[in-house]
Design a binder for these strands. Structure first.
Lengths: 212, 212
DNA sequence: ACCTGAACACCGTTCAAGT
DNA sequence: ACCTGAACACCGTTCAAGT
């Protein structure tokens, strides 16, 4: 039962498995070495350091992103499909996805979703320069939404009506009347619905911009 | 020359100063204690741990956010002004702002910008439930944009035309034709302009939604 | 070429001991 | 009530030594 030889790819793969299972904060060189049946120092023969592993994780997540789009559907539905791919990647790799938003992504894996999005925007009728601006807005919204979803606490299901009433009184007394009025809607968070509400608002903005 | 007594507020303030000056990664209990002329363990008398300090930093950044809005301007300009306040907070406290996007913000400092945004949306004509969805989209976009801006590498000013040409060839050969076509626009990043492009697209979407 | 032991300079946190 | 010394269980990384 000989172990396969170590390589950068095997190290990154093991890191992704570890992070998927136990979270980003439990990724350490020693822990990862242990996972691969090797001492921590051996990893330095295949990656330049921990930062390199984090870059590799971000790339690995993007590489697994499904950018295939049904050519028959509207550009609006293509944007929705791409947004859905991002959310699938985020929920499949919650620990590692955070890295995607924070790190620069120049590798080929990072370029695939960018190419896909630019093609959609070209089809919609935007010129190259405008498409780049829209692309950056899209990425900002998608990563901002998903990182927030991933770091959010699990939603509380049952709400004590007494606690609710006193909380609303406290908010009003503190001068937060708009929050008090919206308290019942703030208490409910359906992350998936929330995400697609934003995606649709984004698309609505694009449609209006095309018209005007 | 007696030092003022330690307190949670003094600890958080010192942490913010340290993070502003040397970045989030140089914040440690030992380093922070040193800054306050005290051993690291003393800090535990005033905060419950490092996580508590990070929460405090996020709150401190939000507490410094300017939510005053000129009542005379349109709701669109009010949204732009609030977005500008967020960006000012981000560039003033680049290290700590990252924490705002990742942490849950239930404190009063976190509620102020939320109240401001909900009031603007009410003025624009949205009902409470829709306003909450829009608010979450706004926060996702703003934090996503600003975190990306803060972690981006400094923009390269001069571009070697030869390197540019070969890079575009490589992109085309690798099947990234849309990226190749947009390469010149991708090379230029004016973070401020990019940010307000997104804000305006967001506003355009809201206007269209009000009409339809 | 790849792996390891020992070491360095750090971490966050606990706790008994001091004042 | 607050501060400290010593300790515990960790970190990432370097480097000479092994095979």
């Amino acid at each position: 039962m000989t172990r396969p030889a170590l390589s950068r790819e095997r190290v990154i793969d093991a890191a992704l498995t570890l992070v998927d299972r136990e979270g980003l904060e439990s990724l350490s060189m020693r822990r990862l070495g242990q996972q691969l049946g090797v001492e921590a120092m051996s990893l330095y023969n295949h990656v330049s350091g921990k930062a390199d592993i984090l870059d590799g994780l971000a790339e690995a997540v993007l590489a697994r992103l499904d950018v295939h789009l049904d050519p028959a559907v509207s550009w609006q539905d293509k944007i929705r499909a791409l947004a859905r791919s991002f959310r699938t990647a985020a929920t499949s790799h919650p620990g590692a996805f955070t890295l995607v938003s924070a790190r620069q992504l120049g590798s080929a894996s990072g370029l695939r979703p960018i190419e896909a999005e630019l093609l959609i925007l070209h089809e919609a009728g935007f010129d190259a320069e405008t498409s780049v601006h829209i692309l950056r807005t899209f990425v900002a919204f998608v990563t901002g939404s998903l990182v927030r979803e991933l770091t959010a606490e699990p939603v509380v299901s049952g709400i004590d009506p007494v606690a609710r009433a006193t909380r609303i009184e406290v908010l009003k007394a503190a001068g937060f009347s708009a929050i008090a009025d919206a308290a019942d809607h703030i208490a409910i968070v359906d992350h998936e619905a929330e995400y697609y509400f934003g995606v649709d608002l984004f698309i609505t903005g694009l449609e209006a911009q095309l018209r005007g």
